[in-house]
Design a protein around this nucleic acid. Sequence first.
DNA 1: CTACTGACTGATC
DNA 2: TGATCAGCCAGTA
Length: 125
Amino acid sequence: MSKTFTEEIYALVRRIPSGRVMTYGSVAEALGRPRAGRAVGTAMARCGEASKPVPWYRVMGAGGKPSAGGDSRRPQKQRQLLRAEGIVFDRAGACDLEIYEWIPPSLKRRVLEGKSLASAEITPE
DNA sequence: CTACTGACTGATC
DNA sequence: TGATCAGCCAGTA
């Protein structure tokens, strides 16, 4: 039970289906720490050291735009990989989270029980 | 234990 | 539309 927050992040990110994405903030929120988006970013920066591969490119900034973080080529590569999964980006280089953002089943259930099910219901498929 | 560091985010300018 | 500022966080030195 001493799984580190980072490991939980990797586990969740690995569950994101192809063609779907999550934001740093939503990942943190899904793990019970709505204000830990920054820590999520730090973890993604080291996902290469994870025991199993992590689809880091399926995690982007809150605006639906790929994150930079120093390397200006990463966002480009990220978009390329996501487009290969069917995701479409607008001229500003952002995708519509209302369509592609994935809501973890466990969290989705909680949302439905609560009240606002906004984006949780309009997810495709 | 304290200090510093980011692939964050929303508000401001 | 783009740059800056100030909170928030877990991991690392």
